[in-house]
Amino acid sequence: MLEGKVKWFNSEKGFGFIEVEGQDDVFVHFSAIQGEGFKTLEEGQAVSAEIVEGNRGPQAANVTKEA
């Protein structure tokens, strides 16, 4: 698991990027966000996630919002 913060997230398109210190930004799709209801993230929000290899490079999986 790694910790980072949301760089930006487009709720209409359902994707965005997470900033991780010392690494390239990581793509995040709404389907990777854990929880019930409408899955979205806010800019600057702290999150933790796993990194997996997607079709277009590294992407976030099992994204959870930090308190």
Rank of each mutant, 00 (worst) to 15 (best):
F30I: 07
E36L: 10
A67C: 13
A32C: 08
S31M: 08
W8P: 01
N10W: 09
K5F: 12
E3Y: 15
V63C: 05
V47K: 00
Q34G: 08
F38K: 06
L41C: 06
S48N: 10
K7L: 06
E53N: 13
Q34C: 13
A60P: 01
A49R: 00
E12G: 10
V20C: 08
F17Y: 07
W8D: 03
K5T: 11
E36I: 11
V6L: 02
K5R: 10
D25F: 07
E66P: 12
V6I: 09
T64P: 03
E36N: 11
E53G: 09
A60K: 02
G16F: 05
E3V: 15
V26T: 03
A46Q: 13
A46T: 12
S48C: 14
A60E: 03
Q23K: 12
G37N: 05
G37Q: 05
V26F: 05
F38Y: 12
K7A: 05
I51E: 02
D24Q: 13
G57L: 04
E19K: 11
V52E: 07
A46E: 09
V52K: 09
S11M: 10
E50Q: 14
A46Y: 14
Q34T: 11
M1G: 09
F30K: 06
R56Y: 12
E21L: 12
V47I: 09
A49Q: 03
F17N: 01
K39Q: 09
N55A: 14
E21Q: 12
G14L: 01
P58L: 11
G14M: 01
E50P: 03
D25N: 08
G16S: 00
E50D: 10
E66S: 14
N55C: 15
E66T: 15
W8Q: 02
G35I: 08
D24S: 13
A46R: 15
V63M: 00
A46N: 11
K65M: 10
S31Y: 04
K5W: 11
N55Y: 14
H29D: 02
L41R: 00
Q59A: 08
D25I: 08
E43L: 13
F27P: 00
E53W: 15
I33K: 00
E53M: 15
A49L: 15
S31G: 06
F15H: 06
N10G: 02
I51K: 07
S31C: 09
F15A: 01
F38R: 07
S48A: 10
L2S: 09
N55M: 13
G44W: 04
A32P: 02
D24T: 10
W8H: 02
G14V: 00
G37Y: 05
H29T: 02
F27A: 00
A32R: 00
G35W: 08
E66I: 15
G44D: 04
V52M: 09
F15D: 02
D24M: 12
E43K: 15
D24F: 11
E42P: 03
Q45L: 07
I18C: 04
N55Q: 14
E21H: 11
W8Y: 09
K39F: 04
Q34L: 14
G14E: 00
I18P: 00
Q59V: 11
E21R: 10
G22H: 07
K7H: 06
M1T: 13
T40R: 08
L41Q: 02
T40Y: 11
F30H: 08
W8N: 02
M1H: 12
G4L: 05
G57S: 07
L2D: 04
D24R: 14
H29C: 08
D24Y: 11
E53C: 15
K13L: 11
E43C: 13
Q23I: 11
S11T: 12
M1W: 13
P58Q: 09
N10E: 04
F30A: 05
G14H: 02
E53I: 15
V47C: 04
R56N: 10
F15R: 00
N55H: 14
E21G: 08
Q59K: 08
E43F: 13
G44E: 03
F15S: 00
G14D: 01
E43I: 15
D24I: 12
V47T: 01
L2M: 11
E50K: 11
R56T: 07
G37E: 05
E3L: 14
A49T: 11
G16P: 00
F38Q: 06
K39N: 05
G37D: 05
V6T: 02
G35C: 10
A61N: 09
G44Y: 04
E3S: 15
R56S: 09
Q34V: 14
S48F: 14
F27C: 06
F17H: 02
G44I: 02
N55T: 14
V28E: 02
F30N: 02
E42R: 14
E50M: 14
T40E: 06
F38A: 07
V47F: 01
G44V: 02
K39V: 08
F27Q: 02
K39D: 03
G4T: 00
A46H: 14
G44S: 06
D24V: 12
V28C: 06
S31L: 08
Q59C: 09
A61R: 09
D24N: 13
N55I: 14
Q23Y: 15
M1V: 13
A61L: 10
G4D: 03
E19I: 11
P58S: 08
D25H: 07
A46C: 14
K5L: 10
K7Y: 05
E42D: 09
V47N: 01
K5Q: 08
A49C: 15
I33G: 03
K13E: 05
V28G: 03
I51G: 01
R56G: 08
E66G: 14
K7R: 08
V47S: 02
I51M: 08
Q59R: 09
G14S: 01
A61F: 10
A67E: 12
I33T: 03
D25G: 04
W8T: 00
G54W: 07
V28N: 01
F15Q: 01
I18K: 00
E19F: 10
K7G: 04
E42I: 14
G16M: 03
N62T: 10
G54P: 02
A61M: 11
V26M: 06
L2G: 06
E66F: 14
S31P: 02
Q34M: 13
N62Y: 11
V63N: 01
V6Q: 00
E43H: 13
G16D: 00
A67Y: 12
E53F: 15
E19P: 00
Q45W: 10
W8R: 00
G16T: 02
I33H: 01
V20A: 06
I51H: 03
F9E: 04
A49E: 01
K39C: 10
E3G: 09
V6W: 04
E3K: 15
N62E: 05
D24G: 13
T40N: 08
G54N: 06
G37I: 05
E3Q: 15
G16V: 02
F17K: 03
P58K: 11
Q45R: 06
I33C: 07
K65N: 07
G54F: 07
G37P: 05
N10H: 09
V28I: 08
Q45T: 09
V47W: 00
V52Q: 08
A49V: 15
F15P: 01
W8V: 01
G22S: 05
K39R: 12
D25S: 05
F38L: 06
E42L: 13
L2R: 11
K7V: 07
G37H: 06
G57C: 07
V63Y: 00
K13H: 10
F30D: 02
F17I: 08
T40Q: 07
Q59N: 04
S11Y: 11
V6S: 00
F38M: 06
E21I: 11
N10Y: 06
F27N: 01
L2C: 12
H29N: 02
Q34S: 11
K7T: 07
V63S: 02
K13R: 11
A49I: 15
T64N: 11
H29A: 01
D24P: 15
G35L: 06
G35E: 09
Q23G: 10
R56P: 07
G57Q: 04
E3M: 14
W8M: 01
G35R: 00
E66H: 15
A49W: 13
E43A: 15
A60G: 05
V28H: 02
V47L: 03
E12P: 04
E43Y: 14
V28Y: 02
G22E: 05
V26I: 14
S31E: 06
V63F: 00
E36K: 11
G16I: 03
K39H: 06
I18H: 00
G57H: 05
P58V: 09
Q45P: 00
G22R: 03
G22L: 04
V52S: 08
Q45V: 08
A32Y: 05
E36V: 12
Q34K: 13
D24W: 10
H29V: 03
V28T: 03
V26S: 00
F9T: 01
D24C: 13
G57W: 06
L41E: 02
I18N: 00
A32T: 05
E3A: 14
E19Y: 11
M1Y: 12
N10M: 05
E21W: 11
F38C: 10
E21F: 12
K5H: 11
F38D: 07
V63P: 03
G22P: 03
G4H: 02
Q23D: 07
K65V: 14
E43G: 12
F17L: 06
M1E: 08
Q34P: 05
G35S: 09
E36R: 09
M1K: 15
E42W: 13
G37T: 06
D25W: 09
G35V: 08
V47G: 02
R56K: 10
G54M: 08
I51C: 08
I51D: 02
S11P: 12
K65E: 05
D25A: 07
L41Y: 01
E66C: 15
V20T: 05
T40L: 07
K65G: 08
K5I: 13
